[in-house]
């Protein structure tokens, strides 16, 4: 579904990512691991179009999308749930969810999609008129994921969904991720939490200083000494 081909990207002409090659097949759940500053967020931002590539290509469903604007990519179904949740605090939960589905493609199905999201997160359904800023961190993460789903995502990219959540909520969020995967959604999971990701993702890429240090199925990556060195900087 997604193919990253020799991607070089960074800020102000200075590359952060150096010649990244990666693939995500339809229906797969892929983990993207790495320590702080390894380039995880830069990679996910290049996929969503917030960072412009310096060279290389990104193919989505066989089409080169590396020059498209962020909103054009959302329309294609590449949807990012940004790090730190970033809900719109002064708007209600309903408004936040509706805004998730503003792209031309998703707009037509907003009522049905809304039902689905509420079915997935009944807690949100109970407080649709409440302002998003009044929710707890875990509930905001639910809302951020729900908002992403409203866009009719084909590829959902979750940036650090466990960040700052209580263990109970982390477990809950990952159960939801498993459920979405079981329903056939393709998911890219960006995480610092190594063990958690290895438990839920089938395949993983480990980034180190802007390059792929290790890759393969979860078991292989787990036992790869390069994974350990990428994390501990040894």
């Amino acid at each position: 579904m997604l193919e990253i081909d020799n991607l070089v990207a960074g800020y102000g002409g200075v590359p952060v990512l150096r010649e990244i090659n990666a693939k995500i097949a339809a229906g797969e759940i892929v983990g993207l691991l790495g320590a702080n500053n390894a380039g995880k967020t830069t990679l996910i931002n290049s996929l969503s179009g917030m960072v412009k590539p310096i060279s290389g290509r990104i193919l989505f469903l066989g089409e080169d999308i590396s020059k498209l604007t962020p909103q054009a990519r959302v329309e294609l179904g590449i949807v990012q749930v940004p790090e730190g949740r970033l809900v719109f605090p002064e708007m209600s939960i309903r408004e936040n969810l509706l805004l998730g589905g503003i792209n031309a493609h998703a707009r037509k199905h907003r009522p049905q999609q809304m039902e689905k999201v509420i079915g997935l997160f009944p807690r949100l359904g109970e407080r649709l008129t409440q302002s998003a800023g009044s929710l707890s961190g875990g509930e905001q993460q639910m809302l951020a994921i729900g908002r992403g789903l409203m866009a009719e995502a084909k590829l959902l990219m979750l940036d650090e969904p466990s960040l700052g959540l209580s263990p109970l909520f982390v477990q809950y969020i990952f159960e939801i991720i498993d459920k979405l995967h079981a329903d056939g959604l393709t998911i890219l999971l960006v995480e610092q939490n190594l063990n958690l990701t290895l438990r839920h993702a089938r395949r993983c890429y480990v980034l180190e200083r802007g390059q792929v240090a290790a890759e393969g199925d979860a078991e292989t990556v787990k036992n790869d000494p390069r994974t350990r060195s990428a994390y501990l900087g040894l």
Partner: peptide
């Protein structure tokens, strides 16, 4: 950033 993530032009 969140605005871009939901596809606001």
């Amino acid at each position: 950033k969140a605005a871009q993530a939901i596809g606001v032009n």
